[in-house]
Write a protein that binds this DNA or RNA. Structure first.
Lengths: 208, 208
DNA sequence: TCCAGGGTTGAGCAGTCGCTCAACCCTGCG
DNA sequence: CGCAGGGTTGAGCGACTGCTCAACCCTGGA
């Protein structure tokens, strides 16, 4: 019966969400899971192990619907709008609270860092692949590093997730502003040879 | 004698940096400060209070050299390059570890959230003012919300700070990619009436 | 019917947490 | 000199931490 195991994973996710990493202990997890605290160690060996599994599980669940819709995205602006809608319409879909909290905890725990990195790439990799797809054939492809850009996009999302706790309105405003910025980039892409020549010239002399 | 008080603040900052929020207790802070643990409560009343002061102090110290150089920035690209250099040349200048960790902890503690928000604005506000200055007169000013954009920029920095622990190379790549993206935006700004008309048209039909 | 074994339980261990407190040192003022 | 008071100390409180363990329930096979 994997029932208790699953309840513990769900309990861990729920506990991190509601009380942060600092408020997440074996007993706290077991309580929200409605289960005896000794079962944490019977099923996972340690709280660390459970947290790792929980982080991966939570991230996988959040990434899934996002990755599906990524396939339908056909330009940069749609990509960002997708993120913005996910963030706005349903926090349980778009948010990355668990991952953000785990990243903070992983900062001082090498074992957690490895598993958290894996979860992080569940976000980075699909975004990077989508960027690769969108930018092939575009003059942007020559100058923009999709790997770096994907990391920047994910870092932004994670940072905004942390803002939510202390300044709820700020996250949405930031996403809106970004959405408009991306529209500008696309304009460059639309403008034809004159703009592209200017762009290349500018980048040549300005890029380090 | 404000000596002990200051040592405790420095100790708190150092402890958060080295061991994260989860590894930061009154005893741990006192130990790295070389001071008796009871002094935490004598000088600050509670660990919460000390953490709040430490977060504000650390953030102020990091913001100061950044804000100085902000005055010399004359376009968007220089702004991002400044952030990139600060991040690269000296972690103790550019990084925002303490703030990132406090934001994570504040997620589940309303009292911490207030002070952390204040520290957060030590970053957001100068960036927003600089963006306001850079964009006055530019056609970008009409479409880009500087408040939102400033939050997006800071969120990106904070997210990248968390990346550093689990994927050290990723942060720099992300900053490089962003720097190139901003160069594109400036190209739009340089291009004259044709591009601006296209830009306005695109934004009109695409902005929700 | 018995028994083996996965799953579960509450008690409890050693250690740490935030925090308090009486006792102390040291400096400066009357 | 005495003594008040800011600053400091180590001990210790109750609560909580990760984790262990013997005892238990329950189901399935012999």
């Amino acid at each position: 019966m994997g029932d208790t195991r699953q309840r513990l994973i769900d309990g861990a996710i729920e506990t991190i969400r509601r009380h942060g990493i600092t408020g997440t202990s074996a007993r706290a997890i077991a309580t929200t899971a409605g289960v005896n605290q000794a079962l944490v160690f019977y099923h996972f060996g340690s709280v660390h192990e459970l947290l790792e599994v929980a982080c991966l599980t939570a991230t996988e669940a959040r990434v899934a619907p996002f990755a599906e819709r990524l396939a339908e995205v056909s330009d940069l602006r749609q990509l960002l709008d997708l993120g913005r809608r996910l963030h706005a319409e349903e926090r349980s879909l778009g948010n990355v609270t668990v991952l953000a909290q785990m990243l903070a905890a992983a900062q001082s725990d090498a074992r957690l860092a490895k598993a958290t990195s894996a979860a992080l790439h569940l976000w980075i990799d699909p975004v990077e692949r989508t960027l690769d797809r969108l930018l092939t054939g575009s003059p942007l492809a020559a100058v923009v590093d999709t790997a770096g850009l994907a990391r920047a996009v994910c870092a932004g999302f994670i940072g905004l997730e942390l803002f939510e706790g202390v300044e709820p309105a700020g996250a949405q405003a930031a996403l809106d502003a970004l959405s408009r910025l991306v529209a500008l980039v696309e304009v460059v892409d639309d403008l034809g040879p004159v703009a592209r020549r200017a762009l290349r010239g500018k980048l040549r002399k300005a890029t380090p």
